[in-house]
Amino acid sequence: MREEEINRCQIQEWYPKFKSLSIKTLIHELPESFVQYLLDDYGPFLLPLSISKEDALPNRIHKPEEEEDYVVSEGSEDESEQPSSAPSFPELELQIKESIEALGGAVFPKLNWSAPKDSAWISSTGSLKCTSFSEIALLLRSSDSLVNDLCHAYDSCSNRTSLRPSSFFLALRKWYPSLRPEMEFRCFVCGQLLVGISQREVTGYYPALLERKNELQMVIQEFFMDEVRLKFDSENYTFDVYVRKDGQVKLLDFNPWGAFTLPLLFSWEELEENIIKDGNTLEFKIVDSQCGVRPGLKTAVPYDYLDTSPGSGWDQFLRNADEELRRQTQSSG
């Protein structure tokens, strides 16, 4: 993996070239002060002061008695008792507000490479849908997965010369409430050949996908050959697509091959072995039974909050799923 391969997958790099094939997106360069705010792990968790007085959790029940300002008694000399002042980014907030309005009033955010999916649980909607700067700041500030973008994007590069990108960008992508998660797919390209397709939302079983598998593979292959293969400069990478009801394919994202990209229903070792063994054969994987669901790849709470220790509920669930999958495999054989 080389730095230039990682850089090509940044949304501010690929989106201008593929704008007509993707969903509506507006991109803002972030001031360094906001980047440092996202990186601050030592101070208290404070959301920026909103010049629009917008609430990051508009649906919460307010209890004024719990929101009184901390008051330091006269004569106190303990500086640790002094309340920290919340940061403010008025110019950025105004720019983001204008973009949200231009995109229909609701967006989902992502940085150069990643979206804060791991912090969706903390939002008032339980999703990445944002209607204000405050909601966006809450998701970004709460996310652990964005640390990769901020600090570790180049860790796997053989020619690493930078610790981080020179600039960070916030992409605001139009929120489409009608999108069906089962129609999103991750495509794996090696040597400019499409070698694998995986269902993107692997935490659910969707029987209708089994009936449409051949059709979906065909339209995704055609999209790759006609729109992506000769236009994206890397030889090895992944890209995510969404297939609409009418069969039209929308490009959602690019990610590097390996590195921090999830292989979903594949493993990277499996993909590489298939390339050596089968050449340019394309394998399309979907969750084909309830037992094939992968609950650990997406949850409503951060991974650290899951108890997967021996004897826990998740441990037993995964054991039962593995056992049932073995039974089905043996019976079908």
Rank of each mutant, 00 (worst) to 15 (best):
E323C: 08
W175Q: 03
P64L: 07
N59T: 02
I51A: 01
E323M: 09
Q217D: 10
Q36W: 03
A120F: 03
E66A: 06
Q36T: 05
A120L: 07
F34H: 04
D149S: 12
D307Y: 04
Q12T: 04
A137G: 09
F266H: 09
W14R: 14
P48T: 00
K117S: 15
K117E: 05
N320I: 00
R160L: 04
F185I: 07
R326D: 13
A102R: 11
K110L: 06
P58T: 12
S134C: 02
S22Q: 02
T308Q: 05
Q10H: 08
K129R: 15
K298T: 06
S234T: 11
F169W: 15
P116Y: 05
S127Y: 02
R326Q: 13
E201F: 11
R180A: 12
P16R: 02
Q328F: 03
N112I: 01
M218N: 15
K110S: 13
Y237G: 04
V147L: 13
F239M: 06
L163H: 14
V219W: 09
G196L: 05
Y176E: 03
T261N: 03
L194Q: 11
E77S: 09
N214M: 01
K19E: 10
N214D: 15
L111S: 14
A56G: 09
E77P: 03
D69S: 14
K19D: 02
Y37C: 11
G75C: 01
F266K: 05
E269G: 13
L30S: 02
